[in-house]
């Protein structure tokens, strides 16, 4: 029970990060391997504002989101769109975007190392116990989880109810046809990419309230987010959320029952299983 709830709380934040990546990959067709650095950057801002100005990370989020949105929009517009334009095949775009975002990721790590050094950073925010079903959990974890649920829920509603959301889903399903019905695919892809980056950075600000981060941890989160997206199915928000919760629970179980050093290994075993038996994702339809 303890494992289940801790796992769910962790999975909630993972869901937020993975939904961010899924928006970028599903709509803008860019597998953004610098996603983890955006997360760490969000965490840095939260850390800095809390230690310097005692600003609650739950408020910082409102600053992080628009800044990350603008930054990611610029990245997409000026670095990735030229690649989209020049690539003749999907495979070439894939290779190019993998290399370019790896480059961005390394540059991100390099800049953060230069700015903040290689130290771990953590702070104590809402570090008071909350009791759920007779066991106690950190209030920061619970608060992050609630925030993640609110944001994921809002995104889900927005994608499924609003006109803009409909257009974004159209681009995700069939970019060529979306263009034919008068949707500005390039514009929307940039918006989706920016939105995905903003969601991830918010996830980073939230996760920094209870996990210790440093400049080079980004890649671990990128990996986890990628695994979640692939498990949940590309472009599938519900699948992503379920996969994130599953990963949170499995990691927590492995960490507390076997060894905390094996969490990524556990994620990988899960990933390998999905690759071998359900390459279309846990909840995706079998390709015909």
């Amino acid at each position: 029970m303890d494992i289940l709830i801790t796992g769910l709380l962790l999975g909630g934040t993972y869901a937020l990060i993975a939904v961010g990546l899924n928006l970028q990959y599903g709509v803008a067709r860019i597998m953004n391997l610098a996603n983890g650095e955006m997360l760490v950057a969000g965490g840095f801002v939260a850390f800095w504002l809390y230690t310097a100005g005692q600003t609650s990370p739950l408020l910082t989020v409102f600053l992080v989101a628009p800044v990350a949105f603008a930054l990611n929009w610029l990245i997409y517009r000026f670095m990735l769109q030229p690649l989209v334009k020049r690539s003749k095949t999907r495979g070439q775009l894939e290779t190019d975007s993998i290399l370019a975002t790896f480059g961005l990721s390394f540059v991100g790590v390099g800049l953060m190392l230069a700015a903040f050094g290689g130290d771990y950073f953590s702070y104590s925010f809402l570090a008071v116990p909350v009791e759920i079903f007779g066991d106690s959990y950190g209030a920061n974890r619970v608060a992050s989880f609630v925030a993640a649920v609110v944001i994921c829920g809002a995104l889900y509603l927005w994608l499924n109810q609003s006109r803009a959301g409909l257009a974004i889903r159209a681009v995700a399903t069939a970019p060529a046809s979306a263009r034919l019905v008068g949707i500005d695919v390039r514009h929307l892809a940039a918006i989706a990419f920016a939105l995905g980056g903003a969601v991830t950075a918010v996830g980073g600000a939230l996760i920094s309230t209870y996990l210790t981060l440093d400049a080079s941890t980004g890649v671990v989160f990128t990996l986890k987010a990628l695994i979640i997206v692939i498990m949940g199915g590309v472009g599938d928000v519900r699948g992503t959320i379920l996969a994130a919760l599953l990963l949170g629970i499995v990691e927590t179980a492995v960490a507390s029952l076997i060894d905390p050093g094996l969490t990524l290994a556990a994620a990988y075993i899960l990933f390998l299983g999905v690759l071998l038996f359900r390459p279309q994702g846990l909840f995706g339809k079998a390709p015909t």
Binding site: M31, L223, Y268, F271
Partner: peptide, 24 residues
Amino acid sequence: RLSGVYFVIFTLGLAELVRQVITW
């Protein structure tokens, strides 16, 4: 047999996977 992205991600994590198992 899967797409290039899966391959990149899997190979990226492979070193980490083996490392964690040996450390353990």
